[in-house]
Design a protein around this nucleic acid. Structure first.
Length: 288
DNA sequence: AAGGCGTGGAA
DNA sequence: TTTCCAAGCCT
């Protein structure tokens, strides 16, 4: 396997996007919040919400002191609102277990609510500069192509970490840059559709290119249709509560115009199970 | 371990 | 219009 880090890191240093969480001294809390928001939400939509969030809650303690309803409401339309609830819980856990300081150890990060293999290592690497493999969907696609000569990655697997570890430079700082560079390449050049191989800094070393760009199939999961789904109904219920005064409304008025009333009720019930909604004597509200 | 979970922009 | 896709996590 040829060295990918030297050309990729050089490319990153000259062309990487200027993003808030890449500013020097951005801080571990900012990094943690950004990573929560970036879980399945595009970069461009995250940036303004991240800045507003950190202005309101500049520390884990500040968020931990707020009611969960405030976090869910501030999350606005970023999607997957359970992440707001999980981030709020993580802030409480950081205060309870770590004195209000975002932990540095991967195991401690993994033990926080809403943090998995990706986010734990992203914080340890990008906030603290430690040496770990950081593997997201971009990195998996870059490795699938450059190393495994496949057109698309398989489903996320534990072995992904070892595959990235094998490519990682020895020095901490170079390893951190390589982690970020692999993600950046996947996000801007080695994209899922229509990759820009002409502009790729590691095209000369790419196994997929050497093999003639074979279509090796696509094992990714298909997302269920959103229009008319329970998920869309949940979204409508939560949107109403977010925008209601005091994040509270008479149950009968919440998404009252939803076409299928039984689906609406099902959505409310599932939101209550998830802790995103509370019900008391005819009222629905975001969790206090 | 396969499926559920929001939202909006691009192709 | 429909489908795809986006710095995943949890159960």
């Amino acid at each position: 396997m040829p060295d990918l880090a030297t050309p990729l890191n050089a490319w990153y240093r000259s062309t990487a996007r200027d993003l808030p969480w890449r500013r020097p001294g951005f801080g571990a809390w900012g990094t943690l919040v950004s990573e929560f928001m970036l879980q399945q939400t595009p970069v461009n939509r995250v940036v303004p919400h991240l800045e507003a969030w950190l202005e309101r809650w500049p520390t884990p303690a500040a968020l931990a002191d707020a009611p969960p309803a405030a976090a869910v409401a501030q999350w606005a339309n970023l999607g997957y609102p359970r992440r707001a609830l999980w981030l709020h819980r993580a802030a409480i856990e950081i205060c309870d277990r770590h004195g209000g300081v975002v932990p540095r150890e991967v195991d401690a990060l993994l033990a926080l609510t809403g943090i998995g293999d990706y986010t734990a290592r992203a914080v340890a690497v990008f906030a603290y500069g430690d040496r770990h493999p950081v593997v997201d969907t971009n990195t998996r696609r870059v490795i699938a192509r450059a190393v495994d000569a496949r057109s698309q990655p398989g489903p996320a697997a534990k072995g992904d970490l070892a595959a990235m570890e094998a490519l990682l430079p020895r020095a901490d700082a170079e390893a951190a840059t390589f982690n970020a560079a692999a993600m950046e390449l996947g996000a801007t050049v080695c994209t899922a559709r229509s990759p820009r191989c002409d502009s790729c800094p590691i095209a000369h070393a790419c196994a997929w290119r050497a093999a003639g760009y074979p279509d090796t199939g696509d094992s990714r999961r298909r997302q269920a249709r959103y229009e008319g789904s329970d998920r869309q109904a949940r979204g409508a219920v939560l949107k109403a509560l977010r925008e209601g005064a005091g994040h509270e409304l008479p149950a009968k008025l919440v998404a009252a115009d939803w076409a299928d009333p039984r689906q609406r009720d099902r959505a409310v019930d599932s939101l209550i199970v998830d802790g995103l909604v509370e019900a008391t004597d005819g009222m629905l509200r975001l969790p206090r």
